[in-house]
Computed example of a mutant assay.
Amino acid sequence: MRTLSPKQIIRAGLLLLPSTVVLAAAPPGGMPPMPVEAQPVTVGEIVRSADTVGNLLGYEAVVLRPQIQGKVEKILFEEGQPVTAGQPMVQLDDDQYRAELDEAVANRDLSDANYRRTQELIKRKVASQTDKDKAYAELQANKARVALKKEALSKTVLAAPFDGIAGLRAVSVGDVVTPGQALVEVVDIDPIKVDFRVPEKYVGEVQQGQQIKIRVDAFPGEKFIGEVYAVAPLIDSNGRNLQMRATVPNADSRLRPGMFARVELAMKRYENAISVPEEAIVPMGDKQLVYRIKDGKAEMVPVKLGIRHQAMVQVVQGLEPGDVVITAGQIKVRPGAPVNPINLKQDNAEAPL
Rank of each mutant, 00 (worst) to 15 (best):
T3Y: 07
T3A: 11
L4P: 00
I10L: 14
R11S: 11
L17I: 00
T20K: 13
A24E: 09
P35V: 11
V36Y: 05
I46V: 05
V47G: 04
R48L: 11
A50D: 09
V53N: 10
N55M: 14
G58P: 07
G70Y: 04
I75D: 01
G80W: 15
V83Y: 04
G86N: 14
P88D: 10
D94K: 10
A99D: 12
L101G: 03
L101A: 04
A104K: 04
N107E: 12
Y115W: 15
Y115I: 01
R116C: 04
K123G: 12
D131M: 09
K134L: 14
A141P: 00
K149D: 13
L153W: 07
L153E: 05
S154I: 00
S154H: 05
A159C: 03
P161R: 05
A182Q: 07
V186C: 05
D188S: 15
V194Q: 11
E205S: 11
Q207Y: 00
Q208H: 10
G226M: 03
E227W: 02
A232H: 08
D236S: 05
N238K: 12
N238E: 13
N241M: 13
Q243H: 13
T247F: 10
N250W: 03
A251F: 01
G258M: 06
V263C: 09
Y270H: 14
A280P: 03
D286R: 10
D286T: 08
L289Y: 10
Y291I: 09
E299P: 05
V303N: 00
I307M: 07
Q310P: 01
V315I: 11
Q317A: 11
P321T: 03
V325M: 09
Q330F: 10
I331Q: 15
A337M: 15
P338S: 07
P338N: 09
A349I: 08
A349F: 08
E350I: 07
E350V: 09
L353W: 07
